[in-house]
Design a protein around this nucleic acid. Structure first.
Lengths: 191, 191
DNA sequence: GAGCAAGTAGCACGATTGTGCTAGAACCCG
DNA sequence: CGGGTTCTAGCACAATCGTGCTACTTGCTC
């Protein structure tokens, strides 16, 4: 198989192990077993465990970026914002997987320098997106400081919803998530 | 020393290790070393590692509850809400510690059944608090479904702010956190 | 077909883990 | 002062970990 494809397969094996047993459970042996490979074979694609995990975390960002980029966005700003930001909520199993894996990696990034840069990159991307939509929705008459506050408010809301969806999936139906987001965007646009 | 006091000391040693090296780093040996005790001695107070970690996580809830309970709350609902909810934000180092430790434990609760009940307990307490303040602030003329949506919105905002404060402390000054909360409560009260 | 690169497998080593266990020190109460 | 409980310390064991290393197989290229 394509070597780069194989690395993707291994990263997805990491995702599955992480979702099942947490990042602590993602030992080299466990990932190899999950992927149906031997340890030695895995190490032919990833020299160290750190390299493997960084690649698996990077894949989260890439996948989300790619999905958002391939989105057909309406012209109306309000509906455009909802379309894009909806895509960041864990509404189906694919996005739930990305969300849980991302959460596990960011938690470890608190103590693992190798993952910190990736976490910052992901957060910067998301915050910039929030900033852009807030600018578009509140209009130019709003004071710049308000834009900053509203950006961090939207930013925190999105991450909070994602965290809650991971922690209490039973209490966070897709309908609830979208309703909360929609309500917030309404308030943002009608002020 | 008082045995119960000793258990508290050990739990605080867990906190320090968790903040420094993550929950993965909180091995029995590391915690014992941090507390200046031998492994065997630690195991006299906590028979298993799981018991130790559960106690340390429980302490997070207890500490926050205790701090909130000892709060002098203004009569005005809007100011009362801000006073109490402010107390849940990581505005000083004591609350930052609680926040980071709580985050680490909830992340592990995703794959560790022993911690799940405590995570649920903490989340239920926080959501109930949000529900109460939303009811008080929006008034009785609001539809019940709106109250639910606004509750989960406030709930997600608070947790999102806490997560961001832990992940990017440089970008989340106490002023920013309180401003965002205050803005949100304003919107809630003036609708 | 020869030969070299790529892929696969698996052993070995030292380090670290949680916990069971024993033995001695400290303390308190009668 | 004696005796029993509480506390402390530390060893031992099996399990697991990441990684270095070697050997075998596969496949592609002259």
């Amino acid at each position: 198989m394509d070597p780069v494809g194989r690395r993707h397969d291994l990263a997805e094996a990491v995702w599955r192990v992480v979702r099942r047993d947490g990042l602590d459970g993602a030992s080299v042996r466990a990932v190899a077993r999950e992927a149906g490979l031997s340890m030695g074979s895995l190490r032919h694609y990833f020299g160290t465990q750190s390299e493997l995990l960084v690649f698996a975390m990077r894949l989260v960002i890439d996948r989300i970026e790619q999905r958002v980029a391939s989105l057909r966005v309406p012209d109306d700003p309000r509906r455009a914002a909802e379309t894009v930001l909806r895509e960041l909520l864990p509404l189906d199993d694919e996005r739930r997987a990305e969300n849980e894996v991302w959460l596990a990696f960011t938690a470890r990034a608190l103590v693992d320098p190798a993952l910190r840069a990736l976490r910052d990159e992901g957060y910067d991307l998301l915050r910039d997106a929030c900033l852009g939509w807030v600018r578009l929705l509140v209009g130019p008459e709003r004071a710049p400081v308000d834009v900053d506050v509203e950006t961090d408010r939207l930013f925190a809301l999105l991450d909070g919803l994602a965290v809650h969806a991971a922690m209490r999936p039973a209490h966070c139906s897709p309908e609830l998530l979208t309703t909360v987001l929609s309500r917030h965007l309404d308030d943002l646009a009608t002020r």
